[in-house]
């Protein structure tokens, strides 16, 4: 007969004990805002499918004071996500050229460079009319 495995009880607040645990939790919590951003897009597409008035009402809500606060929080957490994600890339996908390991800072720097280019292109294309 075997006993069920012992699970050491851990208080739900364990991550508040140290700064790096808190930073870990903030990093993990960014996903809620990535999800929220997906929801905004989903609603936007739905409103777009309903026609001009519905889409304009969607934008008006997004640009209202409350909408701007939500947008700013999403952008802030999305930036935290980008930074933490890119900083982990050398660990997540170490790169070898021949038998030499590519230094981490080159992989991270490459991602930051790509991020800047992508952001600039998105902003440039969005402003195509102005």
């Amino acid at each position: 007969m075997t006993n069920p495995p012992y699970i050491r009880p851990i208080p739900a607040s364990w991550w508040l004990r140290q700064g790096r645990y808190v930073r870990y939790m903030i990093r993990e919590a960014t996903c809620l805002f990535i999800g929220l951003h997906a929801l905004v897009l989903l609603v936007g597409v739905y409103r777009l499918s309903q026609g001009r008035d519905a889409f304009d009402a969607f934008l008006a809500a997004l640009w209202s004071p409350a909408g701007q606060v939500m947008g700013a929080v999403i952008v802030l957490m999305a930036v935290v996500h980008s930074v933490t994600w890119f900083n982990l890339t050398p660990k997540a996908m170490p790169l070898w050229i021949g038998d030499r390991k590519v230094p981490g800072w080159i992989i991270v720097g490459g991602h930051y460079g790509g991020w800047i280019v992508v952001s600039a292109v998105v902003l440039f294309l969005a402003g195509g009319l102005s």
Binding site: H37, W63, Q68, A126, G127
Partner: peptide, 25 residues
């Protein structure tokens, strides 16, 4: 999302109220 969400959300949610883009965009 790491590459696209910050810029996309700036464009969609903040750029027009902050005057970076015109509503026509």
């Amino acid at each position: 999302t790491a590459f696209f969400v910050p810029a996309l959300m700036v464009v969609l949610g903040l750029a027009v109220p902050f005057g970076l883009l015109s509503p026509n965009d």
